[in-house]
Design a protein around this nucleic acid. Structure first.
Lengths: 152, 152
DNA sequence: GGAAGATACTTAACATGTTAAGTGAATGCG
DNA sequence: CGCATTCACTTAACATGTTAAGTATCTTCC
């Protein structure tokens, strides 16, 4: 069996950890986890979104998102309103306080990203991202999460 | 601010998830999580290891590993002995039952890996792994986990 | 050889990942 | 219309990630 330390999942895990290790301390100083930061960033780009759509863009599972939104709301970093037309849906948006928090984190976050780009090389980084995207495509078509296949 | 869905951390996260989505169902059928599987694979390659060294090879933090080893031991998949020379250290090894479980999982795991390689391309896969390894190197030198730097 | 510091874990506490089950609200359709 | 199905979330339960604190053992150095 292949030396598992050189398997694709391990390579991806280690690479991602190497990257996140750069960001976590800064986020932590601002009282944010990686996931909370993803949510704020996703929200900053739009007026309001449904929870399900937010889960897709922030790449979080529903249950995780549910909990995190509860906490972010308690901290007044986001706001929710139930949609008028469909009481099941709730629209989530970033609050003014959330925007301010983002503004305070963004500079250091940008600086870290720039430093990563500088060390690894911008061209190489773009190449890597392309290859990762194609890996996703290669696997996405078949192994998607909820294929309508008989549960047996 | 950069569209975060195209950021490096997200690219790596999505790619890894696309890969792991292929493996999880098979592991699950055998009652193993991804991390438990990593540990068994790491143990299969050697006679016995210290916990700290195992944490390094399986890429798990100490506390996670502590819990998982407790559970794997309860399931009789691994064995531990405290080292004679140093009572702090404990040597971990895979049990016979653990070896058998691995043997039952390995075929499907290998098949999945082969299919991923086939879909993405062996050459491309090797290239990707090289680029990931270099990303690690680029970032590892400075941002390592425990640099002896003033706590402020 | 004995106290201070370092080491190898383990526990604790809280946040998230993951799957299954629950809840209330829309939809489809006879 | 009415009832079964689907949908959009939320809760529950258990496993892991992450940081801090705890415990026992070992090492160092006077």
């Amino acid at each position: 069996m292949r030396d598992f330390s050189r398997s694709l999942p391990m390579s991806l895990l280690r690479a991602r950890e190497a990257v996140m290790r750069q960001f976590r301390p800064s986020l932590r100083e601002h009282g944010l986890t990686e996931q909370q930061w993803r949510i704020l960033r996703a929200l900053a780009a739009i007026e309001a979104v449904e929870v399900t759509e937010l889960a897709r863009t922030a790449f979080l599972l529903g249950p995780s998102l549910s909990r995190i939104l509860r906490d972010l709301e308690a901290r007044n970093l986001i706001e929710r309103k139930t949609a008028k037309a469909d009481l099941r849906r709730s629209m989530v948006s970033i609050s003014e306080k959330g925007v301010k928090l983002m503004a305070s984190v963004a500079p250091s976050s940008e600086a870290i990203y720039s430093e990563i780009t500088r060390r690894y090389g911008a061209r190489k980084l773009a190449e890597l991202q392309d290859m990762l995207a194609e890996l996703e495509r290669s696997l996405g078509e078949l192994g998607a999460s909820d294929e309508a296949i008989a549960e047996e």
